Amino acid sequence: MAKGRVTKDDWTMAALRALARGGLSAVAVDVLARELAVSRGSFYWHFENREALLVAALEAWERHATAEVITTVREEGDPWTRARTLFAVALGTEEIAGLEPALVAHTAHPAVAEVVARVTRTRLDFLAEIFGGLGFGPQESRHRALAGYAAYLGWLELRRTAADTAPEALPESPGAQAALDHLIGMILTPPPAPQGAPRYF
């Protein structure tokens, strides 16, 4: 990338890639400058210090991986289509592989903890909204939101730590789509109601 053409977004994305590769310690200005083929001066044109870069990177992740996804899913008119679209997008190909598990692993840092907590609340609330749209009651929607989010985090962790053992978790695996469809079906399908008990639909 040529000097003078590197934007603030280029720096934030480079920071997120570094974080996914090596954690917070990998977000080093000199290393990122070499990756972007620019001098440190480019960094200080956009950011006051490394902490400002980290905050901007976290906010970019929040925007791209949560706010924009929610906006896209809400454009779907049918509740079932919204639900399936959400899980297909969330569990599909990651923009930066390994980023979310890396963020969760670094919540001891106050800036990371704040954004991860905010993203988690937003996602759980939206998941509960999705399940509510499918006809589940408030408590059941909340419980399914928790289960769905746990499945999401676990799926990403399988990709990162057990790709050889669970290759279906990798988007490019031949069995990935069938495994993903099965997982989504399990999350979205209501349990059988006991005899005489009211059903959710």
Rank of each mutant, 00 (worst) to 15 (best):
T165N: 05
V112L: 03
S39D: 11
L158A: 10
D30M: 05
D125G: 09
E168Q: 10
A111T: 01
L36R: 09
A65T: 06
G77K: 10
A117L: 11
L24W: 04
V104D: 06
E168H: 11
E76S: 12
V116C: 11
G98W: 10
S141D: 05
M13I: 14
T93C: 05
F131N: 00
R74S: 09
I70Y: 09
Q139C: 09
A52F: 10
N49E: 12
Q177D: 02
T72A: 11
E59G: 01
P198T: 05
P191R: 08
R142Y: 11
V115E: 04
L54V: 04
P174C: 06
K8Y: 13
G132D: 05
G92S: 05
H46I: 03
L156K: 09
A193Y: 08
T66L: 10
E51V: 01
V115C: 01
G22N: 03
R84G: 00
P192F: 12
Y44F: 14
G132C: 04
A108F: 13
A105H: 02
A90H: 07
V73I: 12
A28G: 00
L188E: 03
A163Y: 15
D78L: 02
P191Y: 11
A176M: 10
W80Q: 01
K3D: 09
Q195M: 15
G133Y: 15
F43K: 11
V112K: 07
G92F: 12
W80T: 00
F43N: 07
L103H: 00
G137I: 02
L91K: 07
V29G: 04
T165A: 13
K3H: 10
Y200F: 08
A105V: 01
R121K: 09
V6F: 15
L170E: 09
R123W: 04
A20L: 09
A14G: 13
A37S: 12
E75N: 10
A2D: 14
R63I: 07
R21A: 13
L134S: 00
H143K: 14
A28H: 08
W61R: 02
A178Q: 09
A197P: 01
A14D: 12
